[in-house]
C-alpha cells in the first residue's frame, strides 16, 4: 500500500465534499442550537442546559450520520456509474488504496465536521453558563462546559466512521438506494442490539433466542457508542470503557473495510 496515493484520493473526496457544500450543515447546526437555546428557557423549568446538551450531542451524531450514510453510499458507486474510475484505476492506484482513500476522505470530512460542531456546541453552552448566576450553575448535574462530554463526542466520531465504512462497503456492489436502506437498517438494529441479546428472556423459543444472540455478537453494536445520557447527567464514563469501545469500533471498522476491499478487488466494471 502506498500511503501517498491513499492520501491523495482522500484529499479529492474531501475537496468534493467541501465543494458539494456538505459543510453547510454546520450552519444549520449552529442555527438550530442557538435558536433552541433561546426558546427553551421559558419552557423547561430550569432544565435548558440539560436539554441543550441532549440536543447538541444528538445533532452532532445525526448530522454526521446523514453525511456518512448519504455520501458514503455514493462514494464508490458514483465513480463506477460515471466511469471516472476508469481513468483513475489506469494510474498506479491499487483498488484497496482507492477504497481506503475514499474512506479516509469521508472520514476526514466527518472529523472536521464533528470538531467544528463541538466547538460551536461548547460556545453556546459557555454562553448559557455565563448568563446564569453561580447558584443556578451549582444546581446543574454537570458543569455546562463539562469536558467529559468530549468522551461522548469521541465515541460518536468512532460510530460515524464505522457507519461510513458500512455505507462504503455496500457502495462497492449496490445501488445508493439499497445501500442507504441496508446501512440504516444495520444502524437501527445495532442501536437495539441489547434487545437481541435479551430476546431469550422474553421468547420461549431457544432457536430464535440463540439466533438473536448470535446476531448480537455479529452485528455492529451501535448502542455501545451511545454515552450521551451519561455525560449529560455527569455520570462518570470510565476511560477503560471509552478505550475498549474505541478499539471495538476500530476492529469492526477494519473488518468492514477489509470486506469492502475483498468485494471490490475482483469486481468487473462493465
Amino acid at each position: 500500500m502506498n500511503p501517498s496515493i491513499v492520501l491523495q484520493v482522500a484529499g479529492s473526496v474531501f475537496r468534493e465534499s467541501v465543494r458539494d457544500r456538505v459543510l453547510y450543515n454546520l450552519v444549520a447546526f449552529a442555527v438550530l442550537l442557538i435558536a433552541v437555546s433561546f426558546l427553551l428557557g421559558q419552557l423547561t423549568a430550569g432544565q435548558d442546559v440539560k436539554i441543550i446538551k441532549d440536543l447538541g450531542l444528538a445533532a452532532i451524531g445525526t448530522f454526521g450520520l446523514l453525511i456518512a450514510v448519504f455520501i458514503g453510499v455514493g462514494l464508490v458507486w458514483k465513480e463506477v456509474e460515471k466511469r471516472s474510475i476508469y481513468s483513475l484505476l489506469s494510474k498506479p492506484v491499487r483498488r484497496h488504496e482507492f477504497i481506503l482513500g475514499k474512506f479516509c476522505g469521508l472520514g476526514l470530512t466527518l472529523v472536521v465536521n464533528v470538531a467544528v460542531m463541538s466547538v460551536a456546541f461548547y460556545l453556546v453552552l459557555g454562553w448559557l453558563a455565563w448568563r446564569e448566576t453561580p447558584e443556578v450553575r451549582a444546581s446543574w448535574a454537570a458543569p455546562a462546559t463539562d469536558p467529559a462530554m468530549l468522551k461522548a463526542v469521541l465515541l460518536i466520531t468512532v460510530e460515524l466512521l464505522l457507519v461510513t465504512a458500512i455505507a462504503l462497503f455496500f457502495s462497492t456492489f449496490s445501488s445508493p438506494f439499497l445501500s442507504v436502506l441496508m446501512t440504516v437498517a444495520l444502524w437501527v438494529i445495532g442501536s437495539l442490539s441489547t434487545d437481541l441479546r435479551d430476546l431469550g428472556t422474553v421468547v420461549d423459543a431457544p432457536v430464535a433466542a440463540g439466533l438473536a444472540r448470535g446476531l448480537y455478537y455479529i452485528l455492529p453494536n451501535f448502542s455501545a457508542f451511545d454515552v450521551k445520557a451519561e455525560v449529560v447527567h455527569g455520570v462518570p464514563v470510565g476511560a477503560g470503557y471509552v478505550a475498549l469501545t474505541t478499539v471495538y469500533g476500530a476492529v469492526y471498522l477494519a473488518f468492514v473495510l477489509a470486506a469492502a476491499v475483498a468485494v471490490f478487488a475482483r469486481r468487473d466494471f462493465k
Binding site: 468534493e16 460515471k82 466511469r83 471516472s84 476508469y86 481513468s87 489506469s90
Partner: peptide, 13 residues
C-alpha cells in the same frame, strides 16, 4: 496511459 471511451471525470474539479 489510457483514454476510456466517452471519458468522464469529476464534476467538481
Amino acid at each position: 496511459g489510457y483514454l476510456p471511451e466517452h471519458p468522464y471525470f469529476y464534476d467538481y474539479l
